[in-house]
Every structure is written in C-alpha cells, then in structure tokens.
Design a protein around this nucleic acid. Structure first.
Length: 566
RNA sequence: GCGCUUGUAGCUCAAUCGGACAGAGCGCAGCCCUGCGAAGGCUGAGGUUGCGGGUUCGAUUCCCGCCAAGCGCACCA
C-alpha cells in the first residue's frame, strides 16, 4: 500500500498546477511539494508548506497562495477538512469515514500490511557484523548485527530484493595470529613449552577451543604427533579446525539474537577466484596505482590525502584494503548488486572515504555504496565500565547478554538509538528496569490483544469477524489507533530511505500507547457492560485484529517476538 | 595537529528536505481497579536545544568559529 502522504503530495501539486492554469497563481516553477505531519494535532494530520515555499518566486502572500491552492484541490475520499493557516500552511485532516474503512484494508493485506513498492525488486546487499573469526561475537558487535538485520527486514518490506551477508576475514595477519595462538595452546596442553605469540589471543576460549579440537579430532594421535613435530603443519591444521569452530560459534550466537545471513562470504575466495587480480588490474590500467618505497599505493583525485593508501606491501602481500577493494569489485561487478550497504563499527570510520574512492576508481557510481557507521557501545554494570578486548580476553559475548536480558530486550535497546550516537548498555538497568521497560510496554499491548481474542473465542464470538461493520467505529481512541496503524507504511519508507531503523522502536511505542488508550476507553467484549451492543463488539473485534496485525508486523520488522502471554 | 560522529528536560533518547507551542520513556508530584490482564490509563512540574556569530519569512536542523566527549589518523584488520 502506498503511503497516504504520496497521494496528498499529488493532490496538492495538481491543485497548484490548476491554480496556475486558471491564472490564480503566476506561472512560476513549482517548488518541491512536500507534506508532513504537524507537531500540533490541532493542525490536522498533514500539512503542506507550498505557500511559504512559493511566496518568493510568486511574489505573493504565502497565505494567499495556500488559499488558491486549497480552492483548486480536488475532493478525495481520504480527506475531510482542509484549511489554511498563517503564515501559509495548508492543513489537511483525514476523513473519519475513510479512516474507519482502513481497518478493512489492514485486514485484507494481513501480514503484508506495511509493505511498499519503493525498491521495485532492485537488488540490495546488506553486509554486517563481519567480525574476524578469531573469537566469539561480543556485545559491541551486537549493535551492528541488530542494525543490519533490521535494515534488511525493512528493505525487504520496502520492495527490495535483499541479501544479508557476513564477510569472513579468513585471510590476513590477525587470522595467522589466532592460528598460532591455537597451536601454542594445543602444544602447551601436551606439556610442550611453546610460548604464546606476542600478538596472540589470550582469552580462555582459545585454550578451550584448542582442547576441543584435539578432543574431537578423528585421529587424535596423529594430530598430537603433528603438534609435537611439525609446528607449521600443526598450525595450519589447528587453524582450519579453529576457523570452522569459531564460525559455528558466531553463527549460533547471532542466531540467538535472531540474526541470520543468506551468504557467508570468504575473503580467501577473492584471491582464489581471480577477483583480486582483476580489481588490481583494473585500478592499474586506469592509473590509480603508484609504486613507491617498494609498495603499491592507491591514489584517487577525490582523496586530498596525497599519500594514498598501501594496497600491496613491499613484501608482495596485499593489505586488507586490497581485499576490500576486491570484495567490492565482486559485489558490484561480478554479483551486480544495484545497491550495497556496509555496516561498520566506528573504529573503521577512517576508511569510509577511501573505500568510496576505490569504488569510484573501479568505475562504479559511489552513490551505490552506503557505509553506515555504528558508534561504539560501552557496556557497563551500574557504574562499572566493562572493557572489551578480544586479545586480552576481556569479552562479554552476545550469548551472555542474551542469556541475561533476552534477545527482545537486547534488540529493542540497541535499536532505539540512532546509529551515530554512542551509547551505554547498562546490563543492570536492562534487567532491573524490566518492570517498566518499553519492551514490555510494547509487548504487553500485544498480549492484551491476544487476551481479548482468546476470551472472544471462549465466549463464542464470530471467529471470522465477517459480521463486523467498521463504520460503527468512531470513538476518538479508535480513530487515533487507526491513524497510528496507517503510519507503519510511512515508517517503512522512512527507514528504507534514511537507513535509520531507530524510528521503528519509537513507532512501536506510539502504536502501543494508542492501543492501551483504546483498551482503556473502549470495551470490546460485554464483560463489564452487559448492554454493550453486539454490533459494536463485532466492529471492535475487527479493529483489534487489525491492530494485532500491525503490531505483530512492527515487532517482526525489529526481529522481536510477539508474545500471546507474558 | 588533522578527519568522522556526538552535545536537546534530573537520566536515556526522539524530532521525517529548514516549519506553526521542541516530544516520548524512566524518575518526581497527584488521580483512576467489584468485570476484556493495573506489565495499564489520566493530570502536573521540569528546556536560553553546549557557547558565540551568520544565512532565512522561519534554525535543534544549514554555514563559520569556539568549548567538551567518543572514535580514527600503520606496508594491523
């Protein structure tokens, strides 16, 4: 369903053109016509500022312009009253009759309510998390996970064909270090005096993983012999098994947060498939590579940094930037995504510009690449700040947090703040406040709906709702609830264009508020008032079911559950 | 030093391309349960939107300067 706002924009625009044609307004170019929700509900549901915008070019009083436009607006079912207000706004109110009818629309659309056709099937890739598989996913990464997965949900609802991807950095120095750490722990467990590498991973999980690999090896004796006698081969063997174990662990922990991927893409494959060589060749052919100090550097006109970035080290090994260039070459030129979204942590923010430049250098419109930066999360318990470092082993994993506060609380909390403001995640608060937690406030609304439905079924009310006549609705709280429900399509659109999923939890709270108010004001079943007309019960059951659909969809987009009981 | 992000109510955060009185939740002060779940509803107090300039009919929003916080500035990822 198209957001109502779009239709209103057309209505106003057409009216303005007609007013010009009729000579009521001078023949000047129209400004971009936009329609928004006024903050003050007295000003109606939608407002348009075309009068103010045209005032200068038309050389007219904004209020006069608004008046002429309003006079030329065609009557549409959606609109009730329209009025003009100083300094030059056109205020529009949705008609009650049309509003009530939307309950039927929601029921008819069911689970697809909220979908819009913004994407027209264009292919979008959302790549997120992509933590090096050198250890478990910690809570700092959870923000990107929640952000990326929610964005993918919303883009799907907006009509895009979406792929969720995890980029597995299985090449490079950090993996080598991890492999050598595994080998060292394995050797130590056999009583050998092998020191940990200087840049090794010190966490207990490395020791545990090494032990598990030995224990689960199909030929334990052979593996132990390898560890004793051939450090290089043992490191490779331990590494290969360790990588698989870490990926399983990461996959499992993210699944606990309701985060799933369509594709797990291996960095190594870029070298095996020739994408790396192809990308380098392309950059070289187009003059974006310079040799200096024995290394190969990437330069581009869009970078004011005259030094550039090393792409191939003097020892011939590619940097991770080289992999990233090849990776994006693969995304755009081999897999041909129309749009690519990378969700990165704040610690990578310095690489945004050169990544975009590299994409441009590959002949791809950099607008097709969106890089979202999620600011860091500080984890704390009350006043105690918990430092996170995989190398030192100070880790609070996603699994631990989800075990402690639950996936829904975790997702809602991480989603509520805009990605570019840093935030504290206070575990104590997330648990202690659970009584007054917005998560429960929203989910409680759903549980109440479920309660009504259950009770209605127990009392034998028409289960297929066919008798309900929505035109009987009309209480202020009923209309307010329908208004909020209709907003979902606009929220989907807003998130899909702004890439800001934090609007979703805020909307969810507003929707829940509207429902709680309705619940308080309007009896659905005749339990309290035996004289409640049965037709009204039938109509309200329809409204309740529609509200259930919208609330469920909202929770689903956020990757949260909709509990029947709490 | 340079770059990116942030600074809004006591706290945590919103504010849809620059709009009409800056909004929620928590906390605080009150009120509302013999009936669909009170994990709820209603009312109230609480703001010089970090500071100073500028652009504009209009600025939390855009531009410049300053202050403060986080992150980054490797032939690590």
């Amino acid at each position: 369903m198209e957001p109502l706002r779009h239709k209103l924009v057309r209505v106003v625009k057409d009216a303005a053109l007609r007013a010009i044609e009729a000579g009521a307004l001078p023949s000047v170019g129209l400004p971009e016509v936009t329609v928004e929700h006024p903050q003050n509900p007295d000003h109606g549901d939608y407002a348009c500022n075309i009068g103010l915008r045209m005032a200068r070019s038309a050389q007219m009083n904004p209020l006069e312009i608004a008046r002429h436009v309003t006079e030329h607006m065609s009557a549409v079912d959606e609109l009730g009253a329209t009025s003009v207000a100083p300094p030059g706004f056109i205020n529009m109110t949705i008609s009650d009759a049309w509003l009530k009818q939307q309950v039927e629309t929601v029921l008819a659309e069911g689970k697809t309510f909220g979908n819009i056709d913004k994407g027209s099937g264009r292919r979008v890739q959302v790549e997120f998390v992509s933590v090096n598989p050198t250890g478990p996913v910690h809570i700092g990464h959870a923000r990107g996970a929640v952000l990326g997965s929610t964005l993918a949900n919303v883009l799907t609802a907006a009509g895009y064909q979406v792929e969720r991807e995890y980029y597995v950095n299985d090449a490079g120095n950090q993996m080598d270090s991890f492999y050598r750490s595994l080998y060292a722990r394995a050797a130590q467990s056999l009583g050998l005096e092998i020191p940990m590498p200087a840049d090794g991973y010190m966490g207990d999980y490395v020791t545990e993983t090494a032990a598990a690999i030995l224990a689960e090896s199909p030929d334990r004796a052979a593996l132990e012999a390898l560890v004793r006698n051939d450090a290089d081969a043992a490191t490779r063997a331990m590494g290969q098994a360790g990588l698989a174990k870490m990926l399983d662990l990461i996959r499992h922990d993210l699944a606990m947060l309701n985060v799933e991927f369509d594709v797990w893409f291996n960095e190594q494959s870029l070298f095996d498939s020739g994408q790396y060589a192809e990308a380098i060749r392309r950059l070289r052919d187009d003059g974006h590579l310079v040799e200096r100090e024995g290394a190969t550097w990437f330069t581009h006109a869009s970078l004011d940094d005259d030094k550039g970035s090393v792409i191939v080290r003097s020892n011939g090994a590619p940097t991770y930037f080289a992999s990233d260039v090849a990776y994006h070459h693969d995304k755009f030129l081999r897999r041909k995504f129309d749009h690519v979204i990378d969700v990165w942590g704040a610690d990578h923010q310095g690489h945004v510009r050169r990544m975009k430049s590299a994409v441009e250098a590959l002949g791809i419109d950099p607008e097709r690449l969106t890089i979202l930066i999620a600011q860091l999360v500080t984890l704390r318990r009350g006043d105690e700040v918990i430092r996170l470092s995989k190398r030192t082993g100070d880790i609070i994993t996603v699994r631990e947090v989800v075990d402690e506060v639950g996936s829904d609380v975790c997702r809602f909390f991480l989603l509520s703040r805009s990605a570019d403001s840093q935030m504290d995640f206070d575990l104590e608060l997330a648990k202690n406040e659970s009584e007054e937690n917005p998560v429960y406030y929203v989910q409680y609304a759903y549980a109440r709906i479920a309660g009504i439905r259950q009770r209605a079924a127990d009392r034998g009310f028409d289960p297929d709702l066919s008798r309900g006549d929505v035109s009987l609705l009309g209480h202020e709280a009923e209309l307010a609830l329908v208004r909020k429900m209709l907003l979902l399509t606009e929220i989907v659109e807003l998130v899909a264009v702004s890439y800001e999923p934090h609007h979703l939890p805020h909307y969810a709270q507003e929707l829940a508020t509207a429902f709680h108010w309705f619940y308080k004001e309007c009896d659905v079943l005749p339990d309290r008032d035996p004289n409640l007309p049965p037709e009204l019960t039938a109509a309200r059951l329809k409204l309740v079911e529609a509200a259930r659909i919208v609330l469920a969809r909202t929770l689903d987009l956020m990757g949260m559950s909709a509990p029947e009981r709490m």
